[in-house]
Nucleic acid binder design. Sequence first.
DNA 1: TTAGCCCTCATACTTTAGGGTGATTTTGAA
DNA 2: TTCAAAATCACCCTAAAGTATGAGGGCTAA
Lengths: 157, 157
Amino acid sequence: MPNAVNFLVKNKSTILYGVFLAALLFLLKWLELRFIIINHAFEIYAGAIAVLFTALGIWLALKLSKPKTILIEKEIFTEKPETFVLNEKELIKLNISKRELEVLQLMSEGLSNQEIATKLFVSLNTIKTHNARLFEKLEVKRRTQAIETAKRLSLIP
Amino acid sequence: MPNAVNFLVKNKSTILYGVFLAALLFLLKWLELRFIIINHAFEIYAGAIAVLFTALGIWLALKLSKPKTILIEKEIFTEKPETFVLNEKELIKLNISKRELEVLQLMSEGLSNQEIATKLFVSLNTIKTHNARLFEKLEVKRRTQAIETAKRLSLIP
DNA sequence: TTAGCCCTCATACTTTAGGGTGATTTTGAA
DNA sequence: TTCAAAATCACCCTAAAGTATGAGGGCTAA
């Protein structure tokens, strides 16, 4: 932006005010000519009144005007609180029992059947049976698929 | 804010309207007395100027003053778009090759070694070799553990 | 050129996973 | 109490996964 224009913009209020004051003087001059009022003191008096009441008006407006409020909606992405909520509907729908879900969870943690059996104080065969039922209910063929599906359905974290 | 001022603020429009009507009446009166020019002409004239320039001041202030703004930032919590970004540093750190990562991904999707081999147009033994290296690098014993670890390290979605 | 890594594949073997069947015991709801 | 589902376990067999070792070819940086 050129300096001249920049100056005009920055002092917009001041310039406008000057213009109005000039207009006021012209008005007074016109009035003077119209009524042939020669008294110079009157012009000064009227001018003083004009300036004073202009100031009063400005002060009034600034004091009494309501501030404009602007609402800015700031979007904040949450750092994914990682709060796992079990999909109980799907659990009931697939008819998966508590014990089966337990086995499923341990399976997803990378434990072998033997490790799961030891952890749950049951035999390896029992875990195998649970697995077989789980795979049937989840309609999968392998434990890796079971994990993938169970995670997708929010059955496990 | 005091009640008196509050009243003025609330009825700003009404008051301004009243002021302007009064100004209009004064103007008419002034016009009526214009040619007679009686003793009170000066007071009327001064009053008119006062009212007019008060209005001018108000108008000026409202037009030219910067709006008083109050910024209120409202936080909106949004679920993170769940964009997976590969943890390349960990990948380099663990010295995992592109092919191995590829196998790892397919593994996590629940594919069997044979299915991965078919998909990648290589032999089953090749996949087994890749697996062995992967398990070694990830320091795990089973594919389910590999998947668990890889997901935790953001090597796979 | 050569050392090193990656990708490939093979063979042989062990371990784990999974399928099928049958059975007993527990348990929770009607 | 009674019945069905759930949980438990066993046996046998096959499939898949995993281990160990060796080896050839391609690519790249020193």
